[in-house]
Design a protein around this nucleic acid. Structure first.
Length: 544
RNA sequence: GGCCCCGUCGUCUAGAGGCCUAGGACACGGCCCUUUCAAGGCCGCGACACGGGUUCGAAUCCCGUCGGGGUCACCA
């Protein structure tokens, strides 16, 4: 016996984005808060045959699993596309009871009516046309394409919203008959939701505020079908920092902008990009000049390679983006929960179990919230600092799985553990990856940053290079190759010559990493081992 | 534009008529620590959208204005 049954009902058009993730999280928390008396169900809303893909469903499920939002119907996932017959039976029944009817206007006819209404500055309300029996017979006999509309009783509607904590009222003048079955025979969202929520025994519907007024349609339908009315709560919307609505398109937009600048800077043509990325020139041409065109993920990454745009340069919008950029799922959940909900008082950092325990609908806010990545980053930094090493090894494994091109993917678990302890203080797993990937690059493949070489080796009459040559011989003869011994050897070298440690550490750093940045130098040397260290120093000196 | 929702520091928020000289976190500024990059420590800046009521007393209740968002699809 479950007292609370919630659901998440995404439509499979791509990876899960943070808005959807938060909706899922709240529905999940509401159910889990009830313990055994709560159920969280998943339903795939794929009634839009043109936009839904199987691949997107797979991605969606993977994202939810990564977040740890497990659903209670893993063996009986509801796919709306497979329930056409169920919906049709109910729709035929509604038609028979004259609560719904076939409507024969085409989309373009309706568009024209809407435009006309707009020109005359009045609100378009659909009116059921009166068809003569002859017309009906004729349309039926010629099998004319049609939709089915629900005959919406004209009256004032109201329902209780538990998030907003108020009654939402829509006056009779605002209601109109709406489509419940499309020309292609599939039910619309409004119809499928109502039927499925009822059949799945959903008691609480938590969804985005963009659905607030849709609920009026849904309760009218429930009344006609004699379904119970679930409890409704509409969540505030997550916005970008600039106040615009957060959308999957933000990434595509950014890539397009950068591609356009790239074209200008290097005086190239879209065809050049297409060729370098091995994509169809026409496709790239369309995309680059048309904001409404969107690339898929593999096309995006091909183009990013060409114009040298990093994953971390893009705004994270999708759950998958956060995974690729090295955020911990439990931190993302914590942050997302706080975007529009809080347990009261000064409580902010919470484990998933604590979220479950503390979650209440009354703690959900009413206003839209802006997504502030800086704060998420701070949360992630803190979580990364506190997490035990084995948790981070596991997280790092997941990170490199999501980023198979990284050299760090060659690391063993033992090596990952060492890297993690060597470089506490990172903000994301990507930072750890970027700070330590030089270990896993072949010695002769280190790329030397000219500015780093100039500053630390060439400046002041090749002072740094001279130090490096002397240090090379010291390192070659250190008895024990471990951090304390290496530190001791180099500190005494510095003491002899009255040098700051920085004077010798930086040239070594440049030699082994190619840059001026690395984890603490002695631990880095220990990790690299003597052979690689000397090989890199020798190669570096030979390149000067 | 009609309808609907919302309105506390730059951002997320605490706040249920006196505990508010409005608290916390992030961001920002300064100082400290430091072999690089970080991380860390300390200090600081900073808000009740506005105008009317109600009340002994209002960030909290009511009205209006302004501002933000949503929605007006055979997309969900």
């Amino acid at each position: 016996m479950s007292n609370v049954v919630t659901r998440f009902a995404p439509s499979p058009t791509g990876y899960l984005h943070v808005g959807g993730a938060r909706t899922a999280l709240f529905a999940w928390l509401l159910a889990r808060h009830e313990g055994l008396a709560g159920k969280f169900l998943l339903r795939i809303e794929d009634t839009d045959l043109a936009r839904s893909t199987e691949q997107a469903t797979v991605q969606l499920l993977e994202d939810l699993k990564w977040l740890g939002l497990h659903w209670d119907n893993p063996d009986s996932l509801v796919y709306q596309s497979k329930r056409k017959n169920v919906y049709n039976r109910i729709i035929e029944d509604l038609i028979a009871r004259d609560l719904a009817y076939k409507a024969y206007e085409t989309s373009s006819e309706l568009d024209a009516l809407r435009k006309a209404a707009e020109r005359e500055k009045r609100t378009f309300i659909y009116n059921r046309p009166t068809l003569t029996p002859d017309q009906v017979r004729q349309y039926e006999s010629e099998n004319r394409p049609h939709v089915v509309r629900f005959s919406m009783p004209v009256k004032d509607y109201s329902f209780r919203d538990v998030v907003l904590d108020k009654d939402i009222v829509l006056p009779a003048g605002q209601v109109q008959d709406f489509v419940i079955r499309k020309t292609d025979g599939m039910p619309t969202y409004h119809f499928a939701v109502v039927v499925d929520d009822a059949e799945m025994g959903i008691t609480h519907v938590l969804r985005g505020q963009e659905h607030l007024l849709n609920t009026i349609n849904h309760i009218a339908l429930q009344h006609a079908l004699e379904y119970p009315r679930p409890t409704y709560g509409h969540l505030p919307i997550i916005m970008n920092t600039d106040g615009s609505k957060m959308s999957k398109r933000d990434r595509d937009k950014m890539i397009r902008q950068r591609a356009q600048t790239w074209l200008k800077t290097y005086k190239k043509s879209p065809e050049d990009i297409a060729a370098a990325a091995s994509l169809a020139p026409s496709r790239i041409n369309d995309w680059i000049s048309d904001n409404s065109k969107q690339l898929d993920l593999s096309e995006q990454s091909a183009i990013m390679n060409v114009i040298d745009l990093q994953e971390s340069d893009l705004p994270e919008i999708l759950v998958h983006d956060f995974r690729k950029n090295g955020y911990l799922p439990e931190t993302l959940l914590n942050f997302l929960a706080l975007l529009g909900w809080n347990p009261g008082g000064n409580r902010e950092r919470m484990t998933v179990d604590e979220l479950v325990q503390l979650f209440t609908i009354s703690g959900i806010g009413k206003g839209n919230a802006r997504f502030d990545r800086a704060k998420l980053l701070a949360f992630n930094t803190e979580a990364l600092k506190e997490a035990p090493t084995d948790r981070l090894v596991q997280a790092m494994r997941d990170f490199v799985n999501a980023n198979p091109d990284s050299p760090t993917s060659r690391a063993t678990d033992e090596q990952l553990a060492t890297l993690i302890d060597m470089k506490r203080g990172i903000r994301t797993l990507r930072e750890l990856d970027e700070a330590t990937r030089f270990f896993f690059i072949p010695d002769d493949a280190i790329a030397y940053d000219p500015a780093a070489v100039e500053k630390n080796l060439n400046k002041n009459n090749n002072e740094g290079a001279a130090f490096l040559r002397e240090i090379r011989n010291i390192l070659a003869n250190v008895a024990d190759w471990n951090a304390p011994a290496l530190e001791h050897a180099l500190q005494s070298y510095c003491a002899q010559r009255t040098l700051n440690l920085g004077k010798v550490a930086q040239p070594i750093r440049v030699a082994i990493t190619g840059s001026t940045i690395s984890p603490p130098i002695f631990q880095s040397l220990e990790f690299l081992a003597r052979t690689s260290t000397l090989a890199r120093i020798d190669r570096c000196l030979s390149l000067l």
